Amino acid sequence: MKTKITTIALLAVTILSCNNGKKGNSETSETSLDPTNSVKSVSIENTKWIIESIEGTNINNTEADGEEIYFILNSETKRVNGYAGCNTFMGTYTIEKGNRISFSQLASTRKMCPDSKINESQILSIFDMADSFIISGNKLALNKAKRAPLAEFKKAESTNQPIVEKYWKLKTLKGKDVEMAENQELDIFFKLKTEDNRVAGFAGCNSLSGEYTLEKGNRIRFKNMATTLKACPDFAVNEAEFLKIFELADNFTINDDVLSLHVGKRAPLAVFEAVLL
């Protein structure tokens, strides 16, 4: 009798365990089908996004003076920076769960481009209206509610250029050697920062700043270059002549740790050497 009771009890425990196992497997299966759990979060920050279309209409970036219309989100500062076809713009942003995004009112430079074919106000309005985004591979769409995308962007290819994140000290300017003057605080130099494509440097008396873009074939363009306004009447170096380099240069060459900035195929406008700090 005791043997029969023990056998029945064991069967009951076995059946109960099997049912619990099936239930657990069923719950796991249902959870894996839950889109809120299966969708992986993909960051769109710290990436250069180049515009491809606005409300379904393709945008030809060559219309923007050959420069790409883009934006970058900086995850550390929570700031957005970009180029709208004539002027650069900047502001702040927030990202929340569910691919929700919002931008502050953007500010921009005030350069006049009367011949521009790009409607900058239309570009800026994208960020004013956008409240969500969808990312698929190397494509990004900024949306408003459930409407069709306000604009679509593509991820910029990584340049991995040896010109960036290096301290480039000026060696020659228009073929003439440059030496540090006695009343000069620092070497004349510039540095291309990968963050927000910023330029930083020193022109001999004043600090300089601006932006740059790199393209295939060692093409480079500088824009919005500016300096501080410190007066140095006894200074030997002509800062205006040095700054003119960034206005003219459109390509570069690097041999070992020597950089040359050129316009077209002419002789170097200036030659720099990489310095380890």
Rank of each mutant, 00 (worst) to 15 (best):
Q184Y: 03
N46R: 12
N58R: 15
T77S: 14
N99Y: 07
M225Y: 06
N218G: 03
G201Q: 05
K111D: 05
V237F: 07
N61I: 12
Q122T: 14
T159M: 09
N25E: 14
G85T: 12
A200G: 07
I118W: 04
T62A: 07
D128S: 08
N87L: 00
L140W: 13
T28G: 08
A270I: 05
C86T: 11
P149D: 13
E67W: 07
S26Q: 11
G98N: 10
T47F: 01
T47N: 13
I188R: 01
D131R: 05
K78S: 13
M180Y: 02
M129T: 15
S104Q: 05
W49L: 07
F272Q: 05
L259Y: 14
S43W: 08
E179G: 03
V271A: 02
S132H: 12
R110M: 12
T47Y: 08
T109F: 04
L248W: 07
S158F: 08
I254T: 10
E157A: 01
K154G: 06
D131H: 07
L16M: 11
A236R: 00
N218K: 13
S116L: 08
L170C: 02
K244Y: 10
M112E: 03
G21L: 14
Y212N: 09
K154Q: 14
T3M: 02
N143W: 06
I245P: 00
P35R: 00
G85I: 02
L11H: 02
N37R: 02
A9F: 09
D177N: 14
S121H: 09
F202Y: 13
I50R: 06
A145T: 10
P149N: 12
P149F: 01
L106K: 11
N119G: 05
T94D: 07
N19M: 10
L243H: 00
L124V: 08
N183K: 01
K2N: 11
L73Y: 06
S17K: 10
A270N: 06
N60Y: 13
I44E: 11
G98F: 05
Y93M: 05
D234T: 08
A200Q: 15
E45V: 12
T213F: 02
D196K: 15
L10P: 03
S32T: 12
A64T: 15
G137H: 13
K2R: 11
K48I: 05
E45N: 06
T227L: 01
M129Y: 14
I163D: 05
E241R: 00
T14W: 07
N218W: 04
T227S: 04
G204W: 03
E152R: 12
I118A: 08
L33G: 01
C18T: 15
E76W: 05
F103R: 07
I126A: 03
Y93S: 06
F252Y: 15
N99L: 00
Y70E: 04
S116V: 11
T77C: 01
Y83L: 03
N218T: 07
K146A: 03
N183R: 00
T47H: 12
F71D: 02
N183F: 00
M129F: 06
L33D: 00
F89L: 02
S136Y: 11
C113P: 03
I135C: 01
Q184I: 08
S125T: 13
N60I: 06
K22F: 11
D256A: 13
I123H: 12
S116M: 10
G264D: 06
I69R: 04
A9I: 14
I220S: 04
L208G: 01
E157M: 01
Q161S: 14
F127Y: 14
K166M: 05
T28F: 06
I245Y: 02
Q122W: 08
